[in-house]
Simulated assay, not measured.
Amino acid sequence: MTKFQGTGIAIITPFKDDLSVDHSALANLVNYNIDNGTDYIVISGTTGESVTITQEEKKEITATIITANKGRVPLVLGIGGNNTSDVINEIKATDLSEIDAILSVSPYYSKPTQEGVYQHFKAISEICPVDVIMYNVPGRTSSNMSPETTLRLAKDFSNIIAVKEAGNNVHQYLKLLRDKPEDFLIISGDDDLALGVVLAGGAGVISVIGQALPKQFSKMIRLGLEGKAKEAYVIHFQLMHIISLIFSENNPAGIKAVLASLDLAKSNVRLPLVEATNSLQKEIKQALQLLD
Rank of each mutant, 00 (worst) to 15 (best):
S207W: 10
S207A: 12
V208C: 03
I209Q: 09
I209A: 02
I209D: 00
G210Q: 06
A212F: 11
P214S: 14
K215R: 15
K215V: 12
K215L: 11
Q216P: 14
Q216Y: 15
Q216T: 14
Q216V: 15
F217A: 08
F217R: 05
M220T: 10
M220V: 00
R222V: 06
G224I: 02
L225I: 06
L225S: 10
E226R: 05
E226N: 14
G227P: 04
G227E: 13
K228E: 08
K228S: 08
K228P: 11
K230Y: 02
E231P: 11
E231V: 05
E231F: 13
A232R: 09
Y233M: 12
V234Y: 12
F237E: 15
L239D: 11
L239A: 00
M240P: 00
H241P: 01
H241K: 15
H241C: 07
I242E: 08
I242V: 08
I243P: 09
I243V: 13
S244N: 12
L245S: 07
L245I: 06
I246Y: 06
S248W: 02
E249A: 07
N250A: 13
A253L: 08
A253Q: 15
A253T: 09
G254N: 10
I255G: 02
K256V: 00
A257N: 10
A257C: 15
A257H: 07
V258P: 08
L259M: 01
A260Q: 03
S261Y: 13
L262V: 13
L264W: 04
A265M: 04
K266E: 01
K266Y: 02
S267D: 06
S267Q: 10
N268W: 00
N268T: 05
N268V: 10
V269H: 03
V269M: 09
V269R: 01
R270F: 03
R270E: 04
L271V: 12
L271A: 14
L271K: 13
P272L: 05
P272Y: 01
L273V: 14
E275T: 09
E275I: 01
A276W: 10
T277Q: 02
S279P: 08
L280C: 15
L280D: 11
L280E: 11
L280G: 09
Q281A: 03
E283K: 15
E283F: 08
I284H: 01
Q286G: 12
